[in-house]
Design a protein around this nucleic acid. Structure first.
Lengths: 183, 183
DNA sequence: CTCAAAGCTGGCCGATCGGTCAGTAACTGA
DNA sequence: TCAGTTACTGACCGATCGGCCAGCTTTGAG
């Protein structure tokens, strides 16, 4: 049997398995069984296990990059609302990938391809914190920026009570509220 | 050389190494080198690698349990403020342990000793969401509950700009603001 | 002084890991 | 028809993993 889209199947399986058991907790054998091919086939399509991880995170990172570019030209206030909306959408669209990243954060931080993510996230944080520069606004920005992906992380483990639209709206409102200056 | 407090040294080293490289990413050999003893010595003091993980998380889990008991008798409003303060304090005191848990969340969720943590966190979430029961308040509670430990997670990787007191105050204010009903 | 317990070591075990390699079946353009 | 490329397999490799065990010191009570 020869298939045409094995590469995509590998990426799909790897994403689900990495998200469920972590990068280190998932072996090439596990992925091969899930895909229904040999372990060697994985390494025919990808240079290494790490290459699989990098490839499956690539689209999410690319979109984060795009979000960053989109915000660069805006004024402070509209940049903030756009950042909230963009980051919520991005976190919800790439739930599984975020689960993978969160599940292996300490080990991944050292990897060069994620250093860029760190920079982009820091920039987003500055935008969310706004120009005031008080500790509270900076910490609130970190809170939102860490909390939203963490919800995306947890949402597949027992938070099916809300629809995506409800969840999105609620996240944006809660984030906006946390970041709003006290009245 | 015979030492008296090897057990504590093992727990300290393991916590730091697990936090830095993850549970799976740290071998018994790594811990043994860090402590300055043999790998076999680790398994003399603890039944297994997993037992080390369980033991080092035990104090944090016990305190979470205490926080839960303390909140049980309170009314809705004071329970919420006490929950915020208690959870912020707990998250800051056990930063390293939280880093360990976050770093291996997917794998750890299946473990029985962490099922209890899941329950306690859910109860905390209900208290933070309050009696209103709207999606926004529930999601805001999740946001705060996920965001605070995530900051504790990230704080040791480049957020030394604030003192613990500043950080604590800012976290409590940001969390309170995110959870406050719109005025 | 004796001796058992506590604390610890070096060496070893089977299992599993990521990765390599020679070989093969199927498809494809010349 | 046939050479060449693509997609893939099974067997195998060295390294590393968690864990076990026989035996060696050190310590302290009787």
């Amino acid at each position: 049997m020869v298939r045409s889209n094995t590469r995509e199947e590998i990426l799909t399986s790897a994403t689900r398995l990495f998200a469920a058991s972590g990068y280190k907790g998932t072996s090439l054998h596990d992925i091969a069984v899930d895909v229904g091919c040999s372990k060697a086939a994985l390494l025919y399509h990808f240079d290494s296990k790490e290459a699989i991880l990098t490839q499956l995170c690539a689209p999410a990172i690319a979109e984060l990059e795009q979000l960053h570019d989109r915000l660069e030209g805006l004024e402070s206030a509209p940049a903030r609302t756009a950042a909230i909306e963009g980051f919520v959408d991005l976190s919800m669209r790439y739930r599984k990938e975020i689960q993978v990243i969160y599940g292996d954060l300490p080990g991944l931080l050292q990897q060069p391809s994620f250093a860029r993510v760190h920079l982009l996230t820091q920039r987003l944080c500055e935008i969310l914190a706004g120009p005031s520069g008080t500790p509270v606004s900076a910490v609130a920005a970190k809170l939102v920026l860490a909390g939203i992906p963490a919800i995306a992380f947890a949402v597949d483990q027992g938070m099916h009570c809300y629809s995506d639209e409800e969840l999105r709206a609620a996240l944006i409102e809660a984030a906006t509220r946390a970041l709003a200056p006290p009245t």
